[in-house]
Design a protein around this nucleic acid. Structure first.
Length: 264
DNA sequence: TTCCAGGGTCCTA
DNA sequence: TAGGACCATGGA
């Protein structure tokens, strides 16, 4: 077990409950998740207690991002200022691109608890058994699954998207290589995959491919933008132009704030 | 029973 | 290019 004192802002609960990652569960005060086929246990009080080392934390939770600098650059008005103050310390996560892609294909027309359930089912059915839990299924494992087997995991009509996308990735599409491409080029590649439109592509780009300018546009974000900034035909373009190179952080603070506090 | 959820695809105008 | 119907599912 590692005990790590962080001097950088980091709020574990906000980060793991914000709807960007779906394989973490909280037992008491301890979060448990499987990352890179390893069970990670992590809790936060005045310090971080974790089964992983500081290098893992820095990479996975993007602690190498200068959060104060980023937040000050997007803190442009009262509407974004409130989420920043309330959710201060929330980080974007640097996920595995393949896991992120399948997760957000499952997210379409769905809600967070059900997405988690589907991902858990897929891991149990098609992931390699580990000492504690299951690995995320490989593209090859999902390629070998029948549509009926996928649907029994709760995927619904997304079964064929998962199967076809798995086939393309198993055939040699290197998702990680998209990190070296521009935002536009990487997005073009992702949007050729079945089940991937603008929104899913932007989530994959933001949460796994280091494209912090991505601005995923779902119903919550559309509601925020229209409510705070007036009628807008192209919400995604507005968000990117208004918030700039760290539009993805602005997007996630607005999204999570809207989800938690916007419906009260 | 109806509404809703981190949407995408296909068809039509 | 824009708008609308349709798609599975389960909790509220």
């Amino acid at each position: 077990m590692h005990y790590i004192e962080l001097e950088r802002p980091f709020h574990l609960d906000h980060t793991l409950t914000s709807g960007q990652v779906f394989r973490w569960h909280k037992n008491g005060n301890v979060w448990e998740g499987i990352v890179n086929d390893q069970l990670i246990q992590i809790s936060q009080k005045s310090t971080i207690t974790c089964t992983c080392d500081e290098q893992f934390l820095n990479n996975y939770f993007r602690l190498d991002d200068d959060l104060d600098l980023i937040l000050s650059s997007i803190d442009k008005d009262e509407h974004i200022h409130k989420p920043i103050k309330t959710l201060y310390g929330m980080r974007l996560i640097r996920q595995d691109p393949w896991e992120c892609l399948i997760s957000f294909i499952c997210s379409s027309f769905n809600n967070v608890p059900r997405i988690k359930l589907i991902i858990d089912n897929l891991c149990r059915e098609f992931g390699t058994p580990l000492q504690h839990g299951y690995a995320f299924p490989t593209p090859e494992a999902l390629t070998s699954a029948s549509l009926d087997q996928l649907r029994k995991c709760g995927t619904g009509y997304r079964d064929k998207y998962i199967a076809e996308t798995a086939q393309i990735v198993a055939s040699g599409l290197d998702l990680s290589s998209l990190k070296r491409k521009s935002y536009e080029t990487a997005k073009e590649v992702l949007m050729k995959l079945p089940g991937v439109g603008h929104k899913v592509a932007d989530c994959v780009l933001l949460f796994s491919l280091d494209k912090l300018e991505a601005f995923p546009c779902d119903v919550n974000i559309q509601k925020c933008i229209h409510q705070f900034y007036g009628p807008c035909a192209h919400v995604r373009k507005f968000g990117q132009q208004y918030f700039g190179e760290y539009a993805g952080y602005a997007n996630h603070y607005l999204y999570h704030y809207q989800r938690v506090y916007g419906k009260r």
